[in-house]
């Protein structure tokens, strides 16, 4: 059943986003090509190239935002608008519904990431640069004595960041739909609340860590701090994902307020 839900999410969002992405990728490619003019002697071309860089950055950022926005809007419409009457009477569990949307959203968010990565990589021309990067990386690992799993954690954190961000929006909307009127406004308020709570939580964690017996550790090797910070950050992200997941599921299952 989950697979069916995912299939339909992909179909629907895909149809919509593929078109938008196609247009944006065209813009990105042309902007990227224009930035090649930076080598030129002509000031006009240099200006064009400079503008292109700006536009390129903007378009890449827009691609992230538009993708994210589409995923979030789809969630709201399909769960809490009139469509909710269909979604929640399908013979599936609420958790399966939320999971299918989260999964599809996470996968779709990888696309702008991939495009941005490709653009970045496209600036590395000479094979020597690759070797330089590689040897620099090896040196870094040797000097810092960071265990491999820290790199794994960093990689996972990049993938999980949009997941958490999506979930936070989902939580905000699940809270917002509790209101009888102005659900969207309440969702925004809820999101602000979540944001503030998260910042507050972050401050508390860091303060307690600093004030605790770990003060001596500041004087230790800086990469140790990086290691522990990465672990703490990762654990926090996972915990927040779990907490948000539980909240969304609880609200959808028990406090659905369709109108």
């Amino acid at each position: 059943m989950v697979l069916k839900l995912i299939k339909h999410e992909f179909k629907y969002l895909g149809r919509y986003l593929l078109l938008i992405w196609a247009g944006m990728i065209l813009m990105i490619v042309s902007q990227r090509l224009l930035t090649e003019l930076r080598e030129s002697q002509n000031t006009i071309w240099q200006l064009v190239s400079g503008t292109a860089f700006g536009l390129l950055f903007f378009t890449l950022a827009a691609m992230f935002l538009v993708t994210f926005g589409a995923i979030v809007m789809r969630f709201y419409q399909n769960m809490f608008s009139g469509e909710g009457y269909l979604t929640f009477t399908l013979p599936v569990k609420a958790s399966q519904i939320v999971f299918s949307k989260l999964f599809t959203g996470a996968v779709f968010m990888l696309v702008p990431l991939l495009i941005a990565g490709l653009v970045l990589v496209s600036y590395i021309r000479a094979p020597e640069t690759w070797y330089l990067l590689y040897s620099g990386f090896i040196e870094f690992m040797a000097e810092s004595d960071l265990p491999i799993y820290v790199l794994v954690i960093w990689g996972l954190s990049i993938v999980l960041a949009p997941v958490l961000q999506l979930l936070e929006f989902y939580t905000a909307m699940s809270l917002g739909q509790l209101a009888n009127r102005n659900k969207i406004i309440f969702s925004i308020i809820a999101y602000i609340g979540i944001y503030v709570a998260k910042q507050f939580l972050g401050v508390i964690i860091w303060l307690s860590l600093l004030m605790g017996n770990y003060v001596e550790k500041i004087e230790m090797y800086p990469f140790q701090v990086v290691k522990y910070a990465s672990i703490i950050g990762f654990v926090t992200t996972i915990s927040l994902i779990v907490i948000n997941w539980l909240i969304v599921n609880y609200l959808c299952k028990n406090k659905l307020n369709l109108e």
Binding site: Y12, G82, E83
Partner: peptide, 18 residues
């Protein structure tokens, strides 16, 4: 629950389809 939903066909009184 899931079982009853698979056996009940529901027509709400509003447009609920995409």
């Amino acid at each position: 629950g899931v079982y009853s939903k698979s056996k009940i066909s529901y027509l709400p009184d509003k447009t609920y389809l995409n």
